[in-house]
Design a protein around this nucleic acid. Structure first.
Lengths: 347, 347
DNA sequence: AATTAGCACTCGACTCGATAGACTGCTAAG
DNA sequence: CTTAGCAGTCTATCGAGTCGAGTGCTAATT
């Protein structure tokens, strides 16, 4: 949040109107247009002001004889104003109802990404919190000697996996093994569990309790492929294409393509979003404020939420020229809703 | 598969070259260009032939003084030729290796969609077979009175769900309930199970065995939200944007947008693909051959696979002007690979 | 009957110039 | 500090003109 001390109150208001108009219409805003908005000043004065704003880096001209367009810094000021006078909203009852239908956390997050996309008219996403703390696991024998293992982490996050053990196990023994492992490792993070298992296997190579050894070997194959990468749910990517028609010269096809690729890869995007996830609460990152060059044409509005165990995130991605107020409201209300639902009911 | 009896052998060969060239270069093919390809005929003769091909509907001219471009019918003949002389390939060892790393069926299919996309340079997809037959379920108590239920279907398909039972259950009782339900319903399809549960609950309203009743009530909440819709895995959507630059006038932005929307909705796409899924083996649907108007600018190459219990599908979607040979090889080899892996090892 | 050379014709793509219109920056007056 | 007025700049658009690629047709040839 910048201070912008060098900017008089009036100038700031005018800049706000300019940004708003540009977001709305997508065309450079001229001094004449602004003069007709009842500021009580003539277009000539506005030209002077705009020249000053340009000098300070808040706006620029696409070419000499065109109106002004906000720069990323201009958007920044505008967004800071928005954030200052923001009041929290709740999602509409319909949205809440749709969310309540979700059965699993995964389902909920997928729906949230959809709702936030719909409400903001942008690409929406939701990140599950790290399923850090190991709660318990269960083994379910499958036909063909396979084994289904279900891992429950804190916050109701469940993953399952089919493994192919090298040895044979009796149903009763599986039960025992599960009990043993649950008792040993509950409360540790998944990564810790994996390390602990490996370590203990090596340490007690000549484990006198053969049963325990077999249990540990099972656990070893179970946890070896567990990726602690939080899952990313994305919706609304087709909306990115909507604006191409208007041919914003800044959002070119190439940058769009790279964004699409990022969305597909997911892992890279997650890493990137993780950086912002440090800040609690609502964050807006505008265009060139991004570290990643591929994102410098886009803005991000995101907010963290907590399920009582870890923090996840909800947000939207769109062109720098997006309706920030709408996006902020959507992200804010949904991140709060998700917090309520997920920790309140401990789904 | 059409016969095209009215077409002489030579004309057919020329059409094949024309289509191939157009796919390769993306520009209308002229008589002169064809003449330089060593057919032993002059451009004038080729013009005659092309006029005939146009009359028969295999090619068309974008405008009067341009070369010829294949119509969907032209592509059809070309593809039929390809299919006739096709020989099966296996995926490269690297690809096979990458696929083997998958832990669950879901993971495998997600990888398959990725590989088929990569190999064909098109949007790739994979549909899981209906997880029809119920194999078994397990209840896992969670903190807060919640219950995690894991449903295993034939073919190694696993789903899980968190339910919030209205009553309290002892761990021992859960075990019993699971045993009872497994024994009662194993081998039925999921839909049948759901019906059977509801029915039995109503029938024996005054169930003398309270334990059984409680088990059935559990099952009822478990199965009420189970959707038998097969899951769709899609990869490579960003590739669709690659071709926009070349500005194929046929693949306009609007049609692209609708395709993107379809890909996002998934359910609609699944239904649609299901129609083709009836035919076993490899299918190619070209442009206007689609029933759905939104797809008439695109072609689809798909093949079914079987896991011994149900059939799923693998395929690609791309512009009508796609490298069919590459796509067909990719789809064919991967669908066979998936069949091998999934039924052979009974993952 | 099929092939071919030659020629007239068509039509899109590109260039050039001129015009109109939208804004600005600047200057000088209020 | 504001404002009216004016000159200047740049884009977008239109029409004319040209170029060139490619066709269809006709008449001659095999």
């Amino acid at each position: 949040m910048f201070r912008h001390p060098e900017l008089a109150e009036r100038d700031r208001r005018i800049l706000g109107v300019l940004v708003h108009a540009y977001i709305d219409q997508g065309e450079p805003v001229s001094s004449l247009w602004l003069a007709n908005r009842g500021f009580g000043v003539s277009s000539a004065t506005l030209r002077n002001i705009m020249a000053r704003l340009e000098e300070l880096g808040y706006v620029r001209q696409p070419h000499t004889s065109a109106g002004r367009v906000p720069t990323d810094l201009g958007y920044r000021l505008y967004v800071d104003q928005l954030l200052a006078e923001r009041k929290s909203l709740r999602p509409t009852p319909q949205v809440e109802a749709r969310l309540r239908r979700a059965g699993t956390v995964e389902d909920l997050l997928s729906h949230v990404s959809q709702e936030v996309s719909r409400a903001s008219h942008q690409v929406g996403f939701a990140i599950a919190p790290d399923m850090t703390t190991f709660e318990r696991l269960d083994f379910v024998p499958l036909p063909g000697g396979k084994l289904l293992v279900v891992v429950v982490a804190a916050g109701g996050h469940v993953t399952h996996k089919v493994i192919e053990p090298t040895e044979e196990y009796e149903p009763g023994e599986l039960q025992q093994a599960a009990n043993y492992l649950n008792q040993q490792f509950r409360g540790k993070s998944l990564v810790e569990v994996r390390q602990a298992v490996v370590e203990r296997l090596r340490e007690e190579r000549t484990l006198y309790d053969e049963l325990m050894a077999r249990a540990l070997r099972l656990a070893s194959t179970t946890f070896e492929g567990i990726d602690p990468v939080p899952t990313l749910y994305i919706q609304g990517t087709s909306l990115l294409l909507e604006d191409v028609r208007t041919e914003d010269p800044d959002v070119t096809l190439t940058t769009l393509r790279t964004l699409f690729r990022m969305i597909e890869e997911k892992t890279r995007l997650i890493q990137l979003l993780d950086d912002y996830l440090g800040t609690t609460g609502l964050t807006v990152v505008i265009g060139s404020e991004h570290h990643d060059t591929d994102l410098q044409c886009f803005s991000l509005v995101a907010s963290t939420y907590s399920d009582g165990h870890g923090t996840g995130a909800v947000g939207v991605i769109g062109p720098t020229r997006m309706r920030y107020s709408r996006a902020i409201n959507a992200v804010d209300s949904l991140s709060k809703a998700i917090s309520r639902m997920v920790s309140g009911t401990d789904m």
